[in-house]
Design a protein around this nucleic acid. Structure first.
Lengths: 312, 312
DNA sequence: AACTATGATAAATAACACTTATTTGAGTCG
DNA sequence: CGACTCAAATAAGTGTTATTTATCATAGTT
C-alpha cells in the first residue's frame, strides 16, 4: 500500500470514472487500473464496483476511501511542516468567500496579499456557507471567509473582524426621518431580505426575531444580490440592512438613505474558517494578518453586539 | 515520500541507530541510509543529525517523526478496516496489565481468550499505569487493563468491571472482632500500602483520605506485591486492603482474616484502555467481551462506590 | 448493427528499492 | 600517534515495480 495508490483511489471515488481520475492524477488510465487492482489484491477486498455506471464504492470501499482521505491529509502535513520550518509561504491555496463579503473585502485584501506573498497561488471562489462547509470537509477548500459562529465539528474558526449592520432607509419610509435607528425599530414586515441560503439573510432574521417573535413566512420580496436589494428598496418595497463595508465605497450614492445604529450596533462576526487538521496553517495566518491590518483602518466601531448567522 | 520511508524514519528515531533500525525493519542498513536520504532530499531538510553519537533528531526532524507516527498509525487502520470487514480477529496484539490485576485476572482470562481467538498473538506485559500511558501514546501497546478513570487525553476507556476492596485484618488487630467493616473504620496509620507508583496504593490512600484528611507522610512499611503485603500484615504491621478477585483463590488460606465492607462497598473501576485512534478495535472488543463474560460469574456485588486511582 | 465510452490487458521501458561489497569517518585504546 | 572498532555512506548490480503506448473487451446508445 502506497500513498500514491490511496491518492488514486480518492480521485476515482471523487470522479466515479477511471479515465477522468487518471487525468487529474497526471497519469494514464491503465496506471490507475493496475494500481487500484494491486491495492485491492493486497488488501484482498473490492473497493470499487465496476459493474455499475457510473462506478460505485462498495461498503468497505467507502470506509477505505474515508480512511485514505485521512492518511493523505496527514501526509500532506509533512510538506506543511517543512514549509513552516523554511518560513516558506507559497503554493496553491483555495479560499472560499460568502457572497455578501466577497465584493467588498476582496478588492481591499487581494492587492496587498499578492504583493506580500507573491508565491501563493490564490484560487478564490464565491460560495454559500453550506457549500463552504462541505468543501472544507472534503478537502476541496483550504480555508474560507464566512459569518460565524458556525459551531461545526471538524472546522475551526478564527475571528477576523466585526462588521456592523447599516440600515438603508428609502425615501418616504416610516423611519426616514430618524437620524440613528435602533434595533427595536426593525420589523420583519417591511424588511427586504436576500434569498434563502444566504447567511446574511439569516442574520437579519435573527435580529428582527429577537424583538418580534412572529415566524410568519409572509416575507417580502427576496433578492440574490445586495445591489438589487438596494434597487428594490428604492422602488418602495421596504427598507433593508447592509453590511458596513459595503457602504464605504457607495457612500456618495447611498449616503442620504443610510442610517447607522445606535451603539451597541448590531454586527456580524466575520472569520476565516478552516479544517481542524490545520493544513497550510501558515498561509491561513498570513491571510488573517493581512485582513486584520486592512480592517483596523476601515472599521472604527468598537461597541457592537454580535448576531448569529444561524437562523434557529 | 512513501509510507515505507516514514516507517524507516520511525525505526531510526526509536533506536537512534541505523543498523539496529534496519534489523527491525528486516532490511539492510544501506537501504535505510538511502531511503532516508531520499526522503530528506525530497523534503529538502535534514531529519537526523548524524554528527552526534548516538544519532539525534533535528528540530524539524522531531516534528516530521511525530507526524510520521500519525500517518503510519492512520495507514495501519486500513488493514484494521479490512479485518473488521472480514470478521477476522487475529494478528499480534500487545496488552499491558497493571501488577495488581495481572495475577488474578490473567489466569481466568487467558485460556478462554486464546481458545476463542486462536489467531490473535497476545503479548502481555506487566506495567505500571504510568508506563502503560506512555506506551499507549507511542504505539508500543495496543491496549491495557488498568484502574480508571484516568482522564488522559488521547486515551479512551471502556469499563470492564468494578472490583470491590476487601479488608485483610490480621489476628489481634483492633478491627478483628468486626464481622463487616465500614470505610469510616479505616485509618491511614495502621494501613499497609504498596510501593509508590502502584495505582492500587493511590486508590487506598484516596479511600482513607476521604475520611481522615491527614497528609502526614509517616506511612507504614510499603511492599511491592500483594503477597508480601499479606505476610507483613500477619507479622503485625497493620491491616491492608485486597482487591476482591485476589481473595477468591486464596479464600481457604485467608478466609478467617477477610472482612467484606458494608455495602456500598468501596471498589475500583477496572477498564480496558486504548489509544483514541481506536486501532485494532475488533480485538479490543473481543477482549472486552471475554472478560465481561468471565467477571459476570465472579463478581456478584452490585452496590459499590468507585474510588479514583489518582491520589489527588 | 455501428458507434461510443470506459475499463481491462499486454508488452516494453524507465525508475526504483534492495542487496552485497567496499569505503569513509569518528571515536578509542594501547 | 597509529591501529582498531563501530557505524554510516557510497558503489555496483539485480530483481521489482510503476508507468507508458497500444490493443482488446464490454456495455450502453443511436
Amino acid at each position: 500500500m502506497t500513498i500514491t495508490q490511496l491518492k488514486y483511489a480518492l480521485a476515482i471515488a471523487e470522479h466515479k470514472n477511471f479515465t477522468k481520475a487518471a487525468e487529474k492524477c497526471f497519469v494514464t488510465q491503465p496506471t490507475l487500473s493496475t494500481q487500484i487492482q494491486k491495492l485491492e489484491d493486497e488488501l484482498d477486498i473490492v473497493i470499487f464496483d465496476r459493474g455499475k455506471k457510473p462506478i460505485e464504492l462498495t461498503d468497505v470501499g467507502r470506509k477505505i476511501v474515508y480512511q485514505a482521505r485521512n492518511i493523505v491529509n496527514e501526509a500532506d502535513r509533512i510538506q506543511d511542516i517543512v514549509d513552516q520550518q523554511k518560513g516558506f509561504i507559497g503554493g496553491e491555496f483555495r479560499l472560499g468567500i460568502i457572497p455578501t463579503i466577497m465584493p467588498t473585502l476582496l478588492p481591499m485584501f487581494l492587492k496587498t496579499f499578492i504583493k506580500k506573498y507573491p508565491k501563493v497561488k490564490l484560487k478564490i471562489e464565491e460560495l454559500t456557507t453550506e457549500e463552504i462547509l462541505a468543501r472544507l470537509s472534503d478537502g476541496h477548500l483550504d480555508a474560507a471567509i464566512a459569518a460565524t459562529p458556525l459551531e461545526s465539528d471538524n472546522i475551526k474558526e478564527r475571528v477576523l473582524y466585526f462588521e456592523p449592520f447599516v440600515a438603508y432607509i428609502p425615501d418616504n419610509h416610516r423611519l426616514n426621518d430618524k437620524k440613528t435607528i435602533e434595533v427595536s425599530d426593525l420589523s420583519i414586515d417591511d424588511m427586504l431580505l436576500l434569498e434563502d441560503g444566504h447567511c446574511f439573510r439569516d442574520g437579519v432574521i435573527n435580529l428582527c426575531k429577537s424583538f418580534k417573535d412572529q415566524t410568519d413566512e409572509n416575507f417580502q420580496l427576496e433578492s440574490g444580490s445586495i445591489e438589487t436589494l438596494i434597487k428594490l428598496s428604492n422602488e418602495g418595497m421596504g427598507m433593508t440592512l447592509l453590511p458596513y463595508l459595503h457602504t464605504l465605497d457607495t457612500i456618495e450614492k447611498l449616503g442620504p438613505n443610510l442610517r447607522h445604529f445606535k451603539e451597541p450596533s448590531p454586527a456580524r462576526e466575520v472569520s476565516i474558517i478552516y479544517h481542524k487538521s490545520e493544513l497550510k496553517m501558515q498561509i491561513i495566518d498570513a491571510i488573517h494578518n493581512v485582513i486584520s491590518g486592512i480592517i483596523r483602518g476601515a472599521i472604527a466601531f468598537q461597541n457592537v453586539e454580535i448576531i448569529s448567522p444561524k437562523a434557529k
